[in-house]
Amino acid sequence: MSNLRGALACAISAALLCVAPAVETLAKDTGYLFVSNEKTNNVIVLEPKTLKVVKDMKVSRRPRDMHFNAEHTLLFVACGDDDVIDVIDVARLEVVKKIPTGASPETFAIDEKRRRIYVSNEEGSSLSVIDLDQGITIHEVPTGAEPEGVYIHEDGKSVYVTSEVGDLVHLVDPDAGAVLQDVVVGTRPRRFVATPDGKELWVTTELSGEVWIIDRAKFANAGKIEFLPPGMRKSDVTPVGIAMTKDGKTAFVTLGHASHVAFVDVATKKTVAYVLVGKRSWGITLSKDEKTLYVANGLGDDVTVVDVASRKAVTSVPVGRIPWGVVIDE
């Protein structure tokens, strides 16, 4: 029995060895999906056509938000229980560096031009401003309790951060290291997407079950969108993840416990479809050709693949325990 297992392990490592050089040449556009799993402390790499696991990567504890650098050679993964951001070499599929953060990093954004990472620290109630190259914290900006979503203004001079407990969106001056202004939104604001014209910032508010729209020039509320998939109760509608097409015409909002993704027409701010996905859907990403959506189902331990054109879930594939986010290298 143990021999058999040993043989199997050999075969697997041999297979991996074979795969490794092939991957090396695909440093860019591997096309792979990366899924972070909060409870199993790993990032699962999937081949998106076959949905087969390419690699199960051990990372620091409680991996959550993930972002690529501009060239897609590196993948940054915020690991909440070890207070670090793990840096993965996308070609080698290995963790090559760990950047220390504040207490319990949850989500973050990278400013490539100014070489900075902005991280919201869930336990520390702060926004860390980290030097991307040196990996050292330049500023620690106090925020409302449980900060989450981070969005960097295109000019790099302002950063928007939500406070889940404060029901606020902060406007932070990262150079002064201070919050300049707040806007009050719905209950438990989570994550952002900006319209491509740069005029609006959309914020999911989990507990009030809405998306709030912020006029960026005025930094003021400019309306909100409510959701109610057929047959669901309002209290189950807990929007968290959000994505938008490059033309700014359609937004996709994961509705958490309501197990649906809402397709929203951005111009009219009306929901045009609800697509059934898995339990507690949070993380969402859109493929480059915008034909496919990938949704991480936190309490289903799987990722649902949604066909955008037909507005239907195609399949769901098991990953690790409590998948948080999903990104695609293309």
């Binding site: 295109e154 000019d155 001079k157 001056d173 960026r216 020039a217 005025k218």
Partner: peptide, 15 residues
């Protein structure tokens, strides 16, 4: 920062 010139894309309020 507050005195910085306004870009044409909507700029976040500075002050």
């Amino acid at each position: 920062c507050a005195a910085g010139a306004r870009a044409q894309t909507p700029e976040a309020p500075r002050a």
